[in-house]
Design a protein around this nucleic acid. Structure first.
Length: 187
DNA sequence: GCCAGGATCGTCT
DNA sequence: GACGATCCTGGCG
């Protein structure tokens, strides 16, 4: 995994991250669901420019953008596109791959699908907090690695994004088909 | 198993 | 002063 991977158009990065592994400390999981956000559309925090919160979205590709949502949950994004462009990919769901015991402890004893099937759940399971905002996903505490096999193991489908009220028509959510561990829309 | 409602706080208007 | 890129709990069947 290198900076060039993240410097591409955000939609390509969002699709390309499916099947990659996100790790932090001794825990890791395979990414099976992502969403793309870009400064050109109103659902993106960078839509209104470089506000203090959104500033990290304009940082170097491969930077982690971590922020608090609904007062209680940390959500992690991978900054995409060349430096200076406000865009990032929200990691929405993982299939647990390593350190499952620790993940279960941090998730209050839950197991299986309930460990990582949501953006707030997976940060809690991996122990990722606000302190990781601005760190590198290439060589920082939390890292993203490409699959060991060259071929993509998952068939990927694109659907509308979840939990937003603006630009809901864009099919910028990507997830692995036929995988149980993706998050479920509240409908 | 399903649904309704509450928690909770940083950020921008 | 309102609003979220959400999750958990409790009530009911």
């Amino acid at each position: 995994m290198n900076e060039e991977f993240f410097a591409r158009p955000v939609l390509e990065v969002a699709r390309g991250l499916i099947g990659c592994t996100l790790s932090h400390q001794d825990a890791a999981g395979v990414i099976v669901e992502t969403e793309a956000y870009h400064q050109s559309e109103p659902a993106c925090h960078a839509f209104r420019g470089k506000t203090p919160r959104a500033e990290m979205l304009f940082a170097a590709p491969g930077t982690a953008y971590v922020y608090f949502s609904y007062g209680a949950h940390a959500l992690i994004n991978a900054v995409a596109e060349p430096e200076g462009v406000g865009a990032a990919v929200l990691i929405r769901a993982l299939v647990p791959a390593a350190g499952v015991v620790g993940m279960s402890e941090r998730r209050g004893g839950r197991s299986g699908r309930e460990l990582c099937s949501g953006p707030g759940k997976l940060t809690q399971a991996l122990g990722i907090g606000l302190g990781l905002n601005g760190s590198s996903l290439l060589d920082g505490p939390a890292r993203i690695a490409e699959p060991e096999v060259s071929e993509r193991p998952y068939r990927i489908v694109a659907t509308p994004r979840i939990g937003i009220s603006a630009a809901t028509e864009l099919p910028w959510r990507f997830h692995a088909a036929d995988v149980e561990h993706v998050s479920r829309p509240r409908s």
